[in-house]
């Protein structure tokens, strides 16, 4: 029994230490945001990589999710003769929860893994050491542009994902389930409150920060060799996904708890 408790205690301490390290790391990154030099070209490149190139995967995820949601809610609602509320539930579901969470998870899969693998490879091949010897701080050159790009572009991606998701639902509802197009869109629009949209964008911002930060953190702390890069990539995606889901719960509680 003592052994089991000791082992649990060790795990808890290890987890707390990891939280402390990540928090310190986040503070360091944000401290560097405020101090020059700023690498505009790197920032633009990060905006393109994180934001623009994620659009296709975000769009496809949102459109299929919106379509599936309509089918599910319609089937469920039919049991209570509540088919008419499909547009409202889809709109609220997409904007409040599914949009931000799915976009966040897709970003974790696409961007976090890519950042972690790139930075870990740079570490393993001494490119980060080379940066330092060339008088360039890796926090400013590598990490700040990526994290800032995540904070700025992911809320925009969430906004786009929300809209595409609602239109995906609209497409299925009008083409397969006989809903009137104008009524559907009007109902979707009317049900949404400012708070819904703000919560969605705030979630996007937080998830973008988490996703990019985890990529940078795990990349920079990767072990040696191909195995080290692989572990860093896997760890970054796992951590980002879990933190995104945890943060989603906290943010939902803050925005919508009665």
């Amino acid at each position: 029994m003592e052994h089991v408790l000791g082992s649990i205690g060790q795990q808890v301490l290890r987890a707390l230490a990891a939280v402390g390290r990540v928090t310190m790391y986040a503070f360091l990154v944000f401290a560097h945001v405020l101090r020059p030099p700023f690498y505009l070209r790197e920032f633009k490149n990060a905006l393109f990589q994180v934001g623009w190139l994620s659009l296709p995967v975000v769009g496809l995820t949102a459109i299929f999710t919106g379509g599936a949601l309509v089918l599910q809610i319609y089937a469920g609602g039919a049991r209570f003769n509540a088919e008419a509320v499909v547009p409202q539930i889809v709109a609220i579901g997409m904007v409040r929860e599914l949009g931000p969470v799915l976009v966040g998870l897709m970003i974790a899969a696409r961007v976090t893994s890519s950042i972690a693998a790139e930075i870990a490879t740079m570490k393993v091949t001494e490119q980060i050491d080379a940066l330092i010897t060339l008088s360039t701080h890796p926090f400013k050159y590598l990490f700040v542009p990526r994290v800032l790009a995540g904070l700025i572009t992911v809320p925009l991606l969430v906004g786009v994902g929300d809209i595409i998701g609602i239109f995906g639902g609209h497409l299925v509802a009008t083409q397969s389930l006989g809903f009137n197009s104008v009524t559907y869109l009007q109902s979707s629009y009317n049900i949404l409150e400012t708070r819904d949209v703000v919560s969605s964008l705030v979630k996007g911002c937080v998830f973008g920060g988490i996703a990019t930060l985890m990529g940078c953190y795990y990349g920079q702390n990767s072990g040696r060799g191909a195995q080290g890069v692989g572990r860093a990539t896997k760890g970054s995606v796992e951590a980002a996904a879990v933190l995104i889901l945890g943060a989603n719960f906290v943010l939902t509680s803050l925005f919508f708890s009665v």
Partner: peptide, 17 residues
């Protein structure tokens, strides 16, 4: 920065970006 500006280093694997 001034200190590092005095140095150049060739890494084992090149460490090219």
């Amino acid at each position: 920065d001034a200190f590092l500006a005095r140095f150049g280093m060739l890494f084992q694997g090149g460490a090219l970006f």
